[in-house]
């Protein structure tokens, strides 16, 4: 298992759990949860600096970008233009090229707007970005993203923040079979077992925010997700038994008294 690394755009990571940094009570809680989760990649949002309240704590003061890979996102962008603007700014902050593209379609269900997502992936890739793409769980669209230069395919399990778990396991399996790119479940997980299921389906990793940040005990949930991802991966690599309709005793049938 030691050599079993998550490789994204030639960069190796030991942890297959990526966590978001939003929705925590404060920066201290966020930093501690990340530490406990063992995540080496965290998603971050790009927003205006607070000009009026200069004492507001900065994310970089709590999570060291030299130790943890920042994955800037385009959360809140509903078209390609805004997403490109956001990521170009993110790159300017300090050379970030590995990014999470997320172009949303409507405010209620937060599903990805795939036409704009596809367009943005092409442009960003041409500009030298390594684009990890939040997308729906449609194998055809996943293929088109791959052809457009995406460096990781990140289908939703369910709507962002919904906690519903993986709704369409079949589609995730089909996407797994068709792509060699890292496949990461992004959004919609609710509990640690959802992450284990994702890993058992053959996903390369999971991205979790709300399920940890909004759990009653975020630190314990961060640990639970860490363990679930490891367990799910080990289970996937171990080769599960075939399912049968009838029972098959675990103890020998011979020598019964």
């Amino acid at each position: 298992m030691k050599k079993d690394k998550l490789i994204i755009s030639n960069k190796k990571f030991s942890s297959r759990l990526i966590v978001g940094t939003g929705k925590y009570k404060n920066m201290q809680e966020c930093a501690k949860a990340i530490n406990l989760s063992g995540a080496e990649i965290v998603t971050v949002a790009v927003r205006r600096v607070n000009i009026t309240d200069k004492k507001k704590p900065l994310l970089m003061d709590y999570i060291d970008p030299k130790k943890i890979t920042y994955l800037p996102n385009t959360a809140g962008c509903f078209n390609s233009k805004d997403a490109l603007r956001t990521l170009r700014l993110a790159r300017e902050i300090g050379g970030w090229k590995l990014v999470k593209l997320e172009v949303l379609g409507d405010k209620k269900n937060l599903f990805p707007e795939m036409i704009e997502t596809l367009k943005s992936t092409e442009i960003l890739t041409k500009e030298g970005f390594k684009v990890m793409v939040y997308c729906n769980d449609d194998p055809l669209m996943a293929k088109r993203l791959e052809n457009s230069g995406a460096c990781a395919i990140m289908p939703l399990a369910a709507p962002i923040g919904s906690g519903l778990g993986i709704i369409n396991e079949i589609n995730i399996k089909i996407i797994r079979k068709q792509t060699k790119l890292p496949l990461i479940i992004d959004a919609g997980l609710g509990q640690a077992s959802d992450a284990a299921i994702a890993m058992e389906l053959g996903c390369d990793g999971v991205l979790v925010n709300t399920a940890i940040a909004k759990a009653k005990k975020p630190f314990q949930m961060a640990l639970a997700f860490k363990n679930a991802v490891i367990a799910g991966r080990q289970s996937y690599l171990s080769g599960r038994i075939k399912k049968t309709l009838y029972g098959n005793p675990s103890s020998p049938k011979s020598g019964i008294i």
Partner: peptide, 25 residues
């Protein structure tokens, strides 16, 4: 380019945006 901001004179109606990273999913 952050290295060149000393040489950028501001004009009336200029719009400046300064952004940073914050917590997000």
């Amino acid at each position: 380019d952050k290295k060149k901001i000393k040489n950028i004179n501001l004009k009336n109606n200029d719009k400046i945006e300064i952004v940073h990273f914050i917590g997000g999913g």
